[in-house]
Design a protein around this nucleic acid. Structure first.
Lengths: 290, 290
DNA sequence: ACCTAATCCTGTACACTGTAAAGAGTATTT
DNA sequence: AAATACTCTTTACAGTGTACAGGATTAGGT
């Protein structure tokens, strides 16, 4: 019942493993398995049976070593989760060109594209939504995804800070919006019960309840329900995305003349010379440019 | 390692417990504890020590019964999670008036208010973010929160469907945006390590890495880092919210003349007469109207 | 060739988890 | 008084992450 949270292991050790920069062992027997093998096995399990099917024992068994041998290669389960997140952020078979050609004139289409790709990524690996990451996963694949994401906002008149904030905004929105759909998918697979069946199961009970204390919901709910049945996640996603794009457009239009939106409140400059990577890389990768 | 997902127990039983409509027992000894006691204890534990500290044994012990007696009152741990979510959605001490007076003329302020309140709710109960809900929590408190949320969008020229979509959009955005902050809080409390320390720990390693394959990120990252240090979550939140509001404003402005935005694609009308509650109540409550 | 140190792999063990099963005690209905 | 329905308890099982100790294998230093 340890909760699934990545980013708790020794951060440097995690990064070393993620970038393949762990110092090569000088003595001792050759490993029968590699870290990549373990991570790949874990991802396979997670894709198939969900994140709670990923146990150190099962991963070890999948690659053919004994349970405790897992810890020879990966110090923690938390580290495994980090490695899984970066591994899945850009599937090997679907590499993207080094610099995706985003025409700034088509920025709405570009942002829509990366947002949809990001969403598709979550739907392909829904377990990612269940892994809480309280630190950015600074792995190569995640960085790549962040770079592509950022590129969609490049050259359209936004400052660097605004670009980062915009990526964060869209990524956050996508993350929030995809939850319901992804979970619905998972539940359908696991329990075989669709949303419709669930509603019909509880409908008799709901009829016994007085909804008058919730007047607005009571007015809106039935209308929405009749028009869209039990909800159209794709519609909801596009609706929100369009609003976001309109909001961005207004920002871009107003940039030329209007006041600066982001106040540059400098922090004490004792960080000079320090390599500070991006603040909030998206968790996972858009499967962009195919 | 069972994953924390609510909404898996018998839905009707869950609803009965949530609305206090479980049939009163006709015989047998009086209960020493109530469902509300158990839920309250569980929430206390979650608030204090995080969601993975909430075990059936610990909850039972907290109310003074033996571990298995838990199951006399609550069928599942999944049901407990649902009950916790609705219980926390509107703390007893902070009740709101039945109809919060939202002046439609001030809709931007109103939406900002509910969004901020929603965000504050997550920061007060960060464990809510770790509980995956694949079904809406149709409890009284959650309904109330949804109703208040909806009210902020009422009377400003949006259709019912657009109101629902707008609430969903804002709720999704807030959910996504609050993750990092909430987790940072939790980690700070649990490990005593702040984001800054984490960055300084990994900085030496990061300097050994070639970031040139990520040109845009490599350009944006340092600028953002220098201006805002390790990130200003409040700023990022407000930035995204302002864009959202601008997008909504454009929608509202264009409503009078322009074409209908939402195509009314009717589903087969075999749902007539069925009471269909709101599609996607927000998970948790804005602490609105104080 | 030997010894030592580093490394991989393994078995055992512990404290947890959710909860199934069975039974003991208690209050109400018949 | 007997049957019933309910609360609460004990025991038990299959899982989990991982600490610890030891055995097997390789390379470097002598």
């Amino acid at each position: 019942m340890a909760e699934e949270i990545a980013g708790r292991g020794d951060p440097v050790r995690t990064l070393e493993l993620m970038w393949g920069k762990a110092p090569a062992p000088r003595r001792g027997p050759k490993s029968r398995v590699s870290v990549a093998d373990l991570v790949a096995a874990a991802v396979t399990i997670a894709d198939a049976d969900g994140i709670d099917a990923v146990s150190t024992r099962r991963v070890a068994e999948a690659v053919g070593i004994s349970p405790m041998s897992f810890y020879t290669h990966i110090p923690d389960k938390a580290v495994l989760l980090d490695l899984m997140l970066d591994a899945v952020a850009s599937p090997p078979g679907e590499d993207t060109p080094a610099n995706p050609a985003f025409d700034p004139a088509e920025w709405r289409a570009n942002v829509t594209f990366v947002a949809r790709a990001f969403r598709a990524f979550y739907l392909r690996h829904p377990w990612v939504l269940q892994v809480g990451t309280h630190r950015p996963v600074l792995g190569p694949n995640t960085m790549r995804a962040y770079d592509v994401f950022l590129s969609a906002f490049d050259g359209i008149g936004l400052s660097e800070v605004e670009m980062d904030l915009s990526v964060t905004m869209v990524a956050n929105y996508v993350h929030g919006a995809v939850r319901d759909v992804a979970r619905a998918h998972m539940v359908k697979e696991q329990t075989g019960k669709s949303d419709d069946e669930w509603w019909y199961t509880i409908a008799p009970f709901l009829e016994t309840i007085d909804f008058s204390p919730y007047p607005v919901a009571n007015r809106v709910g039935p209308v929405v329900g009749e028009l869209y049945g039990l909800g159209d996640p794709d519609l909801a996603f596009d609706f929100g995305l369009e609003r976001l794009l309109d909001g961005l457009e207004r920002l871009i239009e107003g940039k030329a003349s209007s006041a600066v939106v982001i106040p540059p409140k400098l922090t004490p400059a004792d960080r000079e010379g320090l390599v500070i990577p991006p603040l909030t890389p998206p968790r996972g990768a858009p499967n962009s440019g195919r």
